[in-house]
């Protein structure tokens, strides 16, 4: 589904991501884990086109999209749910969802809206409320639902559990599991390494802008180095 080779992301002279390569198989969840500032979000942002890519190749279903504009990538099925959610605070929940489906034929949108409101009842309940008045967890649900409204082929989730209460963190990972079981391809960026590896089939550990360890998620879960650095004791 996604094949990234030698991707370098730089903000002026500062290279946030240095020549990373990885793949995401169709129908699976892959995760990028690593400490703060390692380049996880920069990698995702370069995939969606928000961050400046210096060099490298990004193939989506075999097609090189690295020179495409952000909105064109969305139309092609690569959809990012950004870190910090970025819901449109002044607009209603409903309008946020509608705009998520901006590039899709209007005739299909009504049915998708209905599906989202069934899956996330809170979005139905708060349909006409300004998105900015939702709680952090509700906003995260909205951001994910808005991303799904675009009918992604590949969903990029950037720190979906960030800043949420433990119970909500669990809900978020339940949603990710559910989406995976429905056959959606997902690239997940998380600081919450244990949970991320639990829902993923493949993992990449990124440090200082480079991928240092990669492998099947169950292997990484039992890797002593990873346990020590990212998972802590008691595994």
């Amino acid at each position: 589904m996604l094949e990234v080779t030698d991707l370098t992301v730089a903000y002026g002279p500062i290279e946030a991501v240095r020549s990373v390569s990885f793949t995401v198989q169709a129908g699976t969840v892959a995760t990028l884990i690593g400490p703060n500032g390692a380049g996880k979000s920069s990698t995702l942002n370069a995939l969606s086109g928000v961050a400046p890519q210096r060099c490298g190749r990004i193939l989506l279903e075999g097609q090189d999209i690295s020179r495409w504009s952000v909105h064109r990538r969305v139309a092609a099925g690569l959809v990012q749910v950004p870190e910090g959610r970025l819901v449109l605070a002044g607009m209603s929940v409903r309008e946020n969802l509608e705009l998520g489906a901006y590039r899709r034929p209007r005739t299909e949108v009504a049915a998708d809206l209905e599906r989202m409101e069934v899956r996330f009842p809170i979005l139905r309940e708060r349909r006409n409320a300004a998105a900015g008045t939702l709680s952090g967890g509700e906003q995260q649900m909205l951001a994910i639902a808005r991303g799904l409204m675009a009918r992604p082929k590949l969903l990029l989730l950037d720190e979906p559990s960030l800043g949420l209460a433990p119970l909500l963190v669990r809900t978020v990972f339940e949603i990710v599991t559910e989406l995976r079981n429905s056959g959606l391809t997902i690239l997940l960026v998380e600081q919450n390494a244990r949970q991320a590896l639990n829902v993923s089939s493949f993992g990449y550990v990124i440090e200082n802008g480079k991928i240092v360890i990669e492998g099947p998620a169950d292997k990484l879960r039992s890797d002593p180095a990873i346990i020590r650095t990212y998972l802590g004791q008691g595994v």
């Binding site: 969606s48 086109g49 928000v50 504009s69 952000v70 909105h71 969305v74 139309a75 959809v79 990012q80 950004p82 970025l86 819901v87 449109l88 605070a89 002044g90 607009m91 309008e95 509608e98 705009l99 998520g100 901006y102 590039r103 808005r146 675009a150």
Partner: peptide, 17 residues
């Protein structure tokens, strides 16, 4: 509404296509 979305947050709007 797309116009308003770009006014509110350009990146978020682009990410919606």
């Amino acid at each position: 509404k797309a116009f308003e979305a770009v006014s509110a947050d350009r990146d978020a709007a682009e990410l919606m296509g």
